[in-house]
């Protein structure tokens, strides 16, 4: 990292989110994050994040490694609870309901969110069972419901044609790209309000990546998607809005095209043009 970046946290200009042009959805916002802070033990990892994620659109989080974009994503479905010594303050709400409020049932919160991880992580079960796992967890045993859901989710993940004849086979017998799409199918099987994707294509080859991106494009409109990516081209290709994070702070958030072509801040343009990160 160069000197500019090191000096950045202190000198980073405060910005007013409203000053940026965020592509708004006609359905309003799904996520509302206000003055959100997070500490791992004594180390603060997120500083005063404020952003609104529009419903039904794809929002990309970009930034260099360790900038807190994955942490922010995992805060949305409280996966950070699994890590000890995490402390948060500020407000984060999904669909007007507070995520970190008192008495929030984490389990039911997570049921409303689908999540796709960096590494494909299907279970050691059949393809069918992998897809309908969220329903099983919810206690659904009706076979026809499960089968319908499975087909819908697999079609949604553009995997149906490849797998309809081998639903009984192990989810682990598929290729990496297929496994990741299987995970997407699992994530959308419970018809979540938000789909969280944590660098879904980073472990895949270019062809599989292209398919995942295509799929995200197809899912646009049906789900509100928040995607963390390392790959700026990917963010540019798939997202409607892009948030640039740096050292735990949200630096710039706006319409993707605007952000990439005409960033407001120097840090953003430095990152985008590849000077650091």
């Amino acid at each position: 990292m160069n000197a500019t970046a090191e000096a950045a946290p202190d000198e980073a200009p405060k910005f007013n989110p409203t000053a940026y042009h965020v592509t708004k959805s006609d359905q309003g916002d799904i996520l509302d994050i206000r003055n959100f802070n997070l500490w791992y033990d004594d180390v603060q990892a997120l500083f005063d994040i404020t952003m609104e994620v529009p419903r039904g659109l794809v929002t990309a989080l970009i930034g260099p490694s360790g900038c807190g974009k994955s942490t922010l994503l995992r805060c949305i479905n409280r996966m950070n609870d699994l890590i000890d010594e995490v402390r948060v303050d500020g407000r984060m709400a999904v669909d007007e309901r507070d995520i970190y409020g008192k008495g929030v049932d984490v389990i039911s919160l997570r049921k409303r969110m689908g999540m796709v991880f960096q590494k494909p992580n299907p279970f050691a079960m059949s393809i069918f069972e992998n897809v309908v796992y969220p329903l099983r967890v919810d206690g659904v045993t009706d076979k026809s419901v499960l089968e319908d859901t499975c087909e819908r989710a697999l079609r949604g993940a553009a995997l149906w044609e490849e797998t309809k004849d081998r639903l009984k086979e192990s989810g682990l017998s598929m290729s990496g790209g297929q496994q990741q799409r299987l995970c997407i199918a699992r994530a959308i099987a419970s018809d979540p309000e938000v789909l969280l994707m944590d660098e879904p294509a980073s472990a895949l080859d270019p062809i599989a990546t292209a398919k995942i991106e295509e799929l995200i494009d197809e899912l646009r409109g049906q789900y509100s998607i928040v995607i963390v990516t390392h790959n700026m081209q990917q963010a540019a290709r798939v997202s409607d809005n892009t948030a640039f994070m740096y050292l735990g702070r949200l630096i710039e958030f706006g319409h993707t095209e605007t952000l990439f072509t005409n960033p407001k801040l120097k840090q953003t343009s430095d990152y985008i043009s590849g000077r650091f990160g």
């Binding site: 996966m79 049921k111 689908g114 999540m115 991880f117 079960m125 796992y133 967890v137």
Partner: peptide
């Protein structure tokens, strides 16, 4: 990541243990 996948699907720790971790 397997544990996370299950928990993120809304499974309780017991469901996760029973259906994913133990198998």
């Amino acid at each position: 990541h397997v544990r996370s996948a299950s928990l993120a699907s809304g499974a309780t720790p017991w469901q996760t243990a029973k259906w994913v971790i133990v198998p």
